[in-house]
Amino acid sequence: MGIIKAFESVLSIVLMVSVGAFLNYRHWFDDDKSNLLVDLVIKVSLPALMIYNMMSNFTKEELLNSGYGLVVPVISMAICYLISFAVAYIVGIDPSRRGAFRSMFFNSNTIFVGLPVNMALFGEKSLPYVLFYYVANTFFFWTLGVSEIRKDSTIYNEPDSSKSVFSIETLNKILSPPLIGLLIALFLILIGVRLPTFLLDTLKNLGGLTTPLSMIFIGITISAIKIQNIRFDKEVIALLIGRFIVGPATIILLSQIFYMPKLMRDVFVIQSAMPVMTNAAIISKAYGSDSEYVAIMIAMTTVLIMIVIPIYIYILSYI
């Protein structure tokens, strides 16, 4: 795939994002309507899509043989987490946002951005691999990631000792509707249940909403960015290197150690290069950390993936 093909492969993504930005510019969306898009995707279309695609693409034997797909994302994120400590020290990240920096360094937006991007690039056959990365990423974020963000509150603000990292609330966050949809699909496959055609068709049609609604929401988010708040200092550059270079590089290196089908490797690379998780801003605000800093990084990394994706598609075609 040449560089022209690489750009063409993300053209539909850019167009859908542009629709969201244009509609927001025309004041079609306020906070409530934007939140409705999120709820529709996270609580309705995405769980339906996961159940449909898992049950359509996997038999019990294939599922059991694909379990190793979790190993590489886990190792990659663990490596990036350790690297984030060294980078934060070398760059001299402000202590009041050092934890947020480390959390954003190794966690990516694997569902709301990663899933529709991979489906647009590789089709529905990429979904199982998207889900493997998503499971590892979700666990790391709601444990180590939240723990790091929480550390900032002891410096940036007063700590909230009433909130525990390992709690029922954390478990509820990990067991999000998309993950519950995945677990339901895994259970049905393992016990050999086959859903009736009318139900599978319903799940497929609901799941089809995921990509366009997600891209429209990304467009809304990008169009709301205040240019004056964007600056490229050493902290920002260090984080961009972590998100767009270190993460994908560890996946590529690990693919030389662990056998992975090309599609799995390509999906993992794209997933590791996705923007900062939007939940990072919510958690930062909840724990009294520097949520504005996190929000700006989410916006910046979301915009820059439009440049990063074609580059990686081009690179992956030659390795």
Score class of each variant (00 low, 15 high):
Ile3His: 09
Ser9Leu: 10
Val10Ala: 13
Asn24Pro: 00
Arg26Ser: 05
His27Ser: 05
Phe29Met: 09
Asp30Leu: 12
Lys33Cys: 06
Leu37Trp: 02
Val44Phe: 15
Pro47Thr: 03
Pro47Gly: 08
Ser56Ala: 12
Lys60Pro: 00
Glu62Asn: 12
Tyr68Phe: 12
Val71Trp: 05
Ser76Thr: 08
Ile83Ala: 14
Gly92Ile: 13
Gly92Cys: 10
Pro95Ala: 12
Ser96Tyr: 08
Ser96Met: 08
Arg98Gln: 15
Ala100Pro: 00
Met104Tyr: 03
Val113Ser: 06
Leu115Arg: 04
Gly123Asp: 10
Lys125Phe: 07
Leu127Lys: 01
Phe132Leu: 07
Tyr133Gln: 13
Tyr134Leu: 12
Thr138Cys: 12
Phe141Cys: 04
Val146Ser: 06
Asn157Glu: 03
Lys173Arg: 15
Gly181Ala: 01
Gly181Arg: 02
Thr197Leu: 06
Leu199Thr: 13
Leu203Tyr: 02
Leu206Val: 10
Gly207Ser: 12
Pro212Ile: 07
Ile227Cys: 09
Asp233Cys: 13
Val236Gln: 12
Val236Cys: 14
Leu239Ile: 09
Ile257Cys: 09
Phe258Ile: 10
Met260Glu: 02
Met260Tyr: 00
Pro261Gln: 15
Lys262His: 10
Leu263Ala: 08
Arg265Thr: 06
Asp266Leu: 04
Val269Lys: 08
Ile270Arg: 00
Ile270Gln: 01
Val276His: 00
Val303Ala: 15
Met306Trp: 04
Ile309Met: 15
Tyr314Glu: 06
Leu316Arg: 01
